[in-house]
Amino acid sequence: MNVQLNGKQVEIPEEVNSVEKLLAHYHLQSRIAVVEINKEIVMKEDYVHQKLSHGDAVEIIHFVGGG
């Protein structure tokens, strides 16, 4: 399916249909991240249940340590 990720149109496999799977798809599962779908923040405990749909606008920001 197609979603808009951080402002860009991306094609992701159909089976990547939850926030948890999306984070794993981008190798971000072990990172601390804030995820927003269609302007609504998804809380961590909902990552497994929160479904992704074609056309969703997704923002993912993960934290890094350096500086």
Partner: peptide
């Protein structure tokens, strides 16, 4: 606003984190 930029991949994101 929590903001991120990847200058190499040319990506940007921002999230209003009030809810957190």
């Amino acid at each position: 606003l929590l903001k991120s930029t990847d200058v190499w991949k040319d990506e940007k994101a921002e999230i209003d984190v009030t809810r957190l």
